[in-house]
Design a protein around this nucleic acid. Structure first.
Lengths: 217, 217
DNA sequence: GGCCCAATACTCACACTGTCCAGATACACC
DNA sequence: GGTGTATCTGGACAGTGTGAGTATTGGGCC
């Protein structure tokens, strides 16, 4: 008879509802993308009345922003794991180039492996999310995907393959490449075979590295 | 006293409701992006009952797809106008490179000038739109943004700056760069001064062209 | 020229969403 | 142990997209 469960949990107060809402949001975003994280849906998953969320977030958009922040941290951690698993060594210059390529692979790789969370993390305006541009735009100091990119560029500079004053434009070009690549493979070429996708990533990263390390007039 | 307008138009039948709905969709998308084109909103703008749209589109998503197609055509036309306005001449190789740069400027320029329509045209999955990947994915033969890109790459090949067998990867790298650049400037760096944005575009396009035309092992 | 029919637009209804307001509840502190 | 306050709940409202059934109409046939 499944009584209409007047309360799914033992206590009236939840304990840490804010964190639970974000976790449920991550869960929904993973399978359904940003669109799937709704106020009623998330509160239902936690087992709480819809309006309970308003005690912790002034509006749904703010909840989504918090979920997006968490998704960015998760993405950075996945990238970290990937980067730790591949050891680049040898000639410093080539190692630095290889490292940047690995960062790119990690970025796009996460986008392809977790499209929902990737869109949640980097979806931008149409999803109602503002992705902070500068480091420090997020309020805590846990690493974000941008951290790995800057690390890679620093290594290129240290190896003498990139001029320090070109860092700004290098960030632009690199980020544009990996992000554009992710969106393309996700939205435009979803049914391309995985091998072909990987080849496209490698090709585009080759072009990027070649362009970055080529001395310009 | 504005009677509640039982019928805003003279005739019961509209005449060309399908086209009118798409036009109204373009109008809403221009100012509010893909989110702003809703079924009730669009039909209201046309002066028609909400469900009238179902005679022409099986679902709202299909209407949006049609609007997105139209937005892509509009984008290609704007790019055409830009490309016609700048005359590139001189040494064939450098002219071809300059032409590719202009195509990139036209792409990003449109994204910055008409963010709503750009998102409608190229928004991709989170907006519920599938952007056709291959030429011919759109059913008519009006030019799309991709057309200009391929034209530019053809000129590079003709000028001997790009190998024909590298076309595929060149499309990837170019599209990723311009699209990623657009998203970045729109979502991540919205309040960057226009001049700085233009500089970022030029820098990233420099990197792209350098990478594309550099012979690889 | 008048009639019928298929196309077209409309009305009513439903389930769902985010958000506001007022009230009930339980934890923490004195 | 009583009280204050942060927290959660209930009902309500204006929106949304969509389904089924109904009215209106213009064009093709006699």
């Amino acid at each position: 008879m499944a009584e209409k469960r007047p309360r799914a949990r033992a206590t009236y107060h939840h304990g840490d509802l804010r964190a639970a809402l974000i976790a449920a949001g991550i869960d929904r975003a993973r399978t359904g993308g940003p669109q799937a994280v709704g106020l009623r849906e998330v509160t239902r998953a936690v087992g709480v009345a819809p309006n309970s969320a308003y005690g912790h977030f002034p509006t749904l958009t703010e909840l989504k922003r918090a979920v997006a922040r968490e998704a960015r941290v998760a993405m950075a951690e996945a990238m970290s794991a990937h980067l730790d698993s591949v050891a680049v060594s040898g000639h410093p210059g080539e190692a630095a180039e290889a490292y940047l390529r690995e960062v790119g692979r990690a970025y796009v790789g996460y986008a392809l492996a977790e499209p929902g969370l990737f869109r949640m993390a980097m979806g931008g305006d149409p999803t109602g999310i503002r992705v902070p541009a500068a480091p420090g735009g997020d309020d805590d100091d846990r690493p974000r995907p941008r951290f790995h990119l800057e690390r890679a560029l620093d290594r290129l500079i240290a190896a003498g393959r990139l001029r320090r004053e070109d860092t700004g434009r290098a960030v632009m070009a690199s980020w544009a490449t990996v992000h554009g690549l992710s969106i393309m493979l996700l939205d435009l070429l979803p049914q391309l075979p995985a091998a072909a996708k990987q080849a496209a990533v490698d090709d585009a990263l080759d072009v990027l590295v070649a362009g970055l390390t080529r001395s310009r007039p």
